[in-house]
Design a protein around this nucleic acid. Structure first.
Lengths: 218, 218
DNA sequence: TATTCTTTGTGATATATTTAACAGAACATC
DNA sequence: GATGTTCTGTTAAATATATCACAAAGAATA
């Protein structure tokens, strides 16, 4: 498993998949080179931040030229383990879950939803976006069988914790939690929480209380 | 429109809706008081961070006692403008959009999706979770008519920019963008970008490259 | 009332992240 | 080549965020 020499800041790590996607776009548009300023325009991240981010991986660009799209893409492919597939399970095939299944992470990706689970008998046995749906009763068995260690949790809030306990027993290592519940897990397990209601509410709060500054208007 | 005396840090502002929700939970469980340590356990935020967050609004607690749930709830209700409803439009009634419509922000909320838009004729004229769906052609007319200034964008990536341009013309002030596209908008308009694919990919990157530290295992 | 216990609010500090600014390397042009 | 231009990589500084640690206020108990 690839491990950086020097630890990459988390903020940088979060932007890597974004850079990767836009580099892919540029590549398929036939672009050969790109400057941090151009990339900044596309991904809406300050160009100094982009240069700094890239510099954690060494000198990837050339002064006066910019970055070679192919080279950068190849580099990130390796760095982001694009060759090594991570299998993901989706727990809860409601509207949000179905959105994930239909998205199913396009081409060029190292991440694939392999299996879905729900309690709804009308969904069990079907496939959505080529992903087979199993009954929640088979959760542990199937996860262990497939060696899946990452789960996306899109179930109703009241069952989030019991299902998480079950995931933990099935040896899961990370849970991407889209329910409003805050999960209790052993410290060896990573949970990342994305709360759509909170996102909307804090966005509205920002709109009301944080007027656009002079500086931003420039 | 309420405006703080002192600017609240953004990180704090993002946590406010979370606190508010958990305080509501406590209240409906009949709890009278809560300490920062208890709240910390529930929302998974360090207790010192919670105390600091609260302290931006003044001395809301009592030493040796904690916080009075009712008082705090009342205070946040005012602070978060829970009495003033913000109307939101949902653009794009696919799976993700439908998830939002069905969620529709429960009781006690200052945020409500009032109207949805899609191009799919089979959806136009129906209502999902009590929210009426109109054709995208009527976007500008309806938004202006209803005085809606916040939009959730859940459309396919290729149409994200043209639709955003249309939203801007209709006087929208904020866009919560769930498409992978990075939007170009005038500087007076706020965009918050939530990219589900990037979230998943960077989460997987974390799992692989950031082993749990000693400290976290305590 | 005296004593002990609890828990806040915050100064001090640590950690993390962003941004400005620019020297110098490499490109482009003549 | 010589000259001017472009654009990186990075130093320094600013900004933002989180956490420790503890005095002091008040609650609880005896």
């Amino acid at each position: 498993m690839a491990q950086e020499q020097v630890k990459i800041p988390q903020a940088t790590a979060r932007r890597l998949p974004l850079y990767y996607r836009f580099l892919n776009n540029l590549h398929s548009q036939g672009k050969q080179r790109v400057s941090s300023a151009e990339l900044s325009e596309a991904v809406k991240v300050d160009s100094a931040t982009i240069r700094r981010d890239f510099s954690y991986f060494g000198a990837l660009g050339k002064k006066g030229y910019g970055y070679n799209v192919n080279y950068l893409l190849g580099f990130f492919r390796k760095t982001l383990d694009q060759d090594e597939l991570t299998k993901v399970a989706l727990i809860g095939v409601g509207n949000l879950g179905t959105a994930f299944l239909n998205y199913n992470f396009l081409k060029n990706n190292n991440t694939k939803i392999e299996i879905g689970f729900d309690v709804d008998e009308s969904k069990v046995g079907t496939a959505i976006g080529d992903v087979p749906i199993y009954h929640m009763d088979e959760l542990q068995e199937k996860l262990i069988e497939e060696g899946i260690t990452v789960a996306i949790l899109t179930v109703p809030a009241p069952v989030a914790q019991p299902i998480t306990d079950s995931l933990v027993e099935a040896n899961i290592k990370g849970v991407l939690n889209f329910t409003p519940a805050r999960l209790n897990v052993p410290p060896s397990i990573r949970v990342h929480h994305i709360d759509l209601a909170v996102e909307l509410q804090s966005f509205v709060y920002f709109l009301k209380h944080y007027p656009i500054t002079e500086k931003e208007l420039l």
